[in-house]
């Protein structure tokens, strides 16, 4: 794919295939580059999407425009691969995350119930005493 660099306008654009990059991947890449550039999207011919990148820096050089275009494609590809991987492995991911978070929360209820409210009250009083001692020392 060829990027068209317009140094006068200070922007770079190209038509990306909708069959390779989903709109979601392009939107995620655009979001990640938002601090560096404004990203515009237009419908192109035969299912393609025209992406235009306009850096936030003034008077960008040709090299800077070229680098920005490369970074956008790299990120779009990364996001697309991540989405594709998630489609295959999403269930594994959800299972591991659910297990980790569920264990941390569910067992907390059991752990919390091991001390009676009376014992917690006693501990709180002892803590107050220790706090007074520490405050005096400090």
């Amino acid at each position: 794919m060829m990027w068209e660099i317009d140094e006068k306008k200070g922007e770079v654009s190209a038509c990306l295939s909708g069959r390779v990059y989903t709109r979601e991947a392009m939107a995620l890449a655009a979001r990640l580059l938002a601090r560096r550039a404004e990203v515009f999207e237009e419908k192109g011919a035969s299912g393609k999407v025209r992406i235009t990148l306009r850096p936030r820096e003034r008077k960008p050089t040709r090299e800077a425009l070229d680098a920005l275009a490369g970074d956008f494609l790299c990120e779009a590809l990364n996001q697309q691969c991540r989405l594709d991987t998630a489609r295959h492995n999403g269930n594994v991911q959800k299972l591991l995350v659910t297990q980790a978070l569920y264990a941390a929360r569910r067992q907390a209820e059991a752990a919390g119930s091991q001390l009676s409210p009376e014992r917690l009250k006693e501990l709180s009083a002892e803590a107050r005493k220790l706090m007074q001692e520490a405050a005096q020392e400090g």
Binding site: N78, T85, A86, N89, V92, L96, V97
Partner: peptide
């Protein structure tokens, strides 16, 4: 937690 599961990273 979600972002750091290696199975979800290409």
């Amino acid at each position: 937690c979600m972002a750091s599961v290696l199975d979800s990273q290409p």
